[in-house]
């Protein structure tokens, strides 16, 4: 009797055992799929927001700041 045939018979002759394993793995796979999705989605959103924020920098002198984004100086 070949190995594969024995595997097959072993699975179908013990339906309760196979079903239990099947259900457990199914549940596990779903939990993993869910958490992996959250992980992937969040990483993507994070990167996207980071990219869209871009690399913008400003250097300013806040002591001169008035209420309109303008710094005040006198020549």
């Amino acid at each position: 009797m070949s190995l594969l045939k024995r595997v097959w018979l072993s699975i179908i002759y013990r339906p309760i055992q196979s079903l239990l394993l099947f259900l457990f793995t199914l549940l596990l796979a779903n939990v993993m799929a869910g958490s992996y999705t959250i992980l992937q989605t969040t990483t993507t959103i994070k990167q996207e927001i980071k990219d869209q924020f871009g690399a913008r920098v400003t250097v300013q002198y806040p002591a001169f700041q008035s209420s309109n984004n303008v710094s005040l100086f006198f020549f």
Partner: peptide, 15 residues
């Protein structure tokens, strides 16, 4: 005579 500088914007090449 008053002179001001607005908040400058620098956009860099990458993050």
């Amino acid at each position: 005579l008053d002179i001001f500088i607005g908040v400058p914007t620098f956009e860099l090449k990458n993050v």
